[in-house]
Design a binder for these strands. Structure first.
Lengths: 235, 235
DNA sequence: ATGATTATCTAATGGTTGGTAGATATGGTT
DNA sequence: AACCATATCTACCAACCATTAGATAATCAT
């Protein structure tokens, strides 16, 4: 009994992993039947599993085996799609990037009570916060990665290092509506930077007890950063 | 040549580590001479090395070997002091804990212009921020750990989860001076929570380009969170 | 049906990891 | 000078890691 496994016999994975068994996909696999899916579907599954695992354990905290287990295939199976562990992260980032909206989307769409030609910065932040609040896992993923990327040899180190400058330049491309007498480059640099800091701070707080509401918390800060008498006509 | 190493021959460590060679201690070790130090000194060296490495790469991002290399001894040598990798983290935390001041220190010491019997919350935050700004490595260590501890199986997970409540209870023990008509429990809960969020947000931003000044940035927020007309007499 | 393509697998490799066992040498005490 | 306690080392281990090589089977086009 229990002979040396013949070549094409499948084996149940007996993991001693940091991953809790309850977290694994219930992909029972019904022994000896390979399920073959289209690359698009598989890539999506892998991305989703990676997002879930990395948002919880960080990039350094997971292995390709963890992802493979969750998606119900072997570790080299995953590697076939992502090329390397770093490839997994790249795939994840680019995938999320074009699946989520940027300011353009907001500017085109607009928000109730805002002039599409002259969007308001605080209104956009409202939109952004609501968007993030509705995707807690992705938001957590971002928070985890942005701190993990402190390490100079982390694949995303440079990306996050340059982030503030990139954010500012990106925002500067839009014709934001401002209170009378205010100048974008002169007066809004602090506001944008501080708003990002606030959101990062709230996102850390979101992971703690007792729970708070992202939107509600942001509104408290919004009243401070964009006070009503001044921004009355622009909110 | 290159015979099987005899038992008591020392060997130069040939690492293929994630740790840059330039980061290693220049402990040349002059071959075949064990340097024996007092446990207190060694423990301090280990703590310092761990703080440095973990603040940069996270707990998951380093190995005991990394610490050993930096401190100039073998990996089991380090293990002799910390017992396990988790023990290293415990040692680090408790060590930092009693090496750094808590609000008590401030309340006793006071600050220029503040009544020792009735300290002011914004004044304490000024002190705290200045303290943290002066210890960038420890501050970064805190930021890294608090996000890494998102993972439910991270040794510090529960600690950070409970942090907000603990902070509030701790602060609530002091006879803070408040503006007229204000009640600590009723009116200051938001301020305390938001201040912590702001500091966490700033500390993330500190790791990015272009550089900002912690104290200066905090002052911007302080003016918003503790506005002058109201807190005039308490700052 | 046949065959090409390729998604997926098993097996194996070289390296690192945290941790253990036991030898050795060092510094302080007698 | 002899000795003890222990700090530190070398050697070893089992587990895990990312990655490669090559076999196999599922799907699709013909």
């Amino acid at each position: 009994m229990n002979p040396a496994p013949r070549y094409h016999e499948y084996q149940t994975t007996g993991s001693t992993q940091a991953l809790k068994d309850s977290e694994k996909e219930p992909k029972e696999q019904t022994m000896a039947s390979r399920t073959r899916k289209s690359p698009e579907v598989r890539r999506a599954e892998i991305t989703q599993a990676a997002a879930h695992l990395i948002s919880q354990h960080g990039y350094n905290g997971i292995s390709l085996k963890d992802v493979a287990d969750m998606v119900g295939m072997s570790q080299p199976g995953v590697l076939h799609y992502v090329g390397s562990k770093e490839g997994l992260l790249s795939l994840l980032v680019t995938d999320i990037y074009d699946a989520n909206g940027t300011p353009e989307e907001f500017v085109q769409t607009g928000l109730p009570g805002s002039d599409p030609d002259h969007p308001h910065l605080p209104a956009y932040f409202d939109y952004l916060v609501a968007h993030n609040a509705g995707q807690p896992e992705l938001t957590q993923l971002y928070t985890v990665l942005e701190t993990e990327a402190i390490s100079t040899n982390h694949p995303l180190h440079d990306y996050f290092l340059r982030r503030p400058e990139e954010v500012w330049e990106h925002y500067s491309k839009f014709p934001w509506a401002l209170p009378d007498g205010m100048d974008w480059s002169r007066d809004m640099q602090d506001s944008v930077r501080m708003s990002v800091e606030v959101m990062d701070g709230i996102q850390i707080r979101l992971l703690r007890e007792p729970k708070i509401d992202y939107v509600q918390e942001w509104n408290l800060f919004k009243d401070l950063l964009f006070p009503l008498p001044l921004w009355d006509g622009c909110r």
